[in-house]
């Protein structure tokens, strides 16, 4: 009997340890860069952002076990939709608010 709920999935500790190791690296580097202050500010910010995106993917893959095989498709669609919407809502808001700041000193 095919039961898709997460209950019957055999779990090993491997993905969690890999995830932990990757997350530690992806955290230590940005923290280290900020502590050292050796790179220009803009570069550091870009690295922080990039590493954050990668670390989120690491968490999704190794802690939440999201993949294109076993994760139900509706969950993936919901996640993709949320990402797109958050992009529109946050991006749009920042565009509007900084535009208003420039023009109206708000």
């Amino acid at each position: 009997m095919e039961i898709k709920s997460g209950l019957q999935i055999e779990r090993t500790i491997k993905p969690y340890l890999i995830g932990l190791a990757l997350a530690v690296i992806l955290t230590a580097i940005p923290f280290g860069l900020v502590a050292a202050g050796s790179l220009p500010r803009q570069t550091t910010l870009i690295i922080i952002a990039g590493f954050a995106v990668v670390q989120i993917l690491v968490h999704l893959t190794f802690f939440l076990h999201i993949d294109f095989r076993t994760t139900p498709r509706e969950n993936l669609v919901a996640l993709a939709f949320a990402v797109v919407l958050i992009f529109i809502m946050v991006g749009g808001s920042l565009w509007i608010m900084f535009d208003l700041y420039r023009r109206m000193m708000v």
Partner: peptide, 8 residues
Amino acid sequence: TMGSSARV
């Protein structure tokens, strides 16, 4: 009417 630019 709250003062956004023409582009927005």
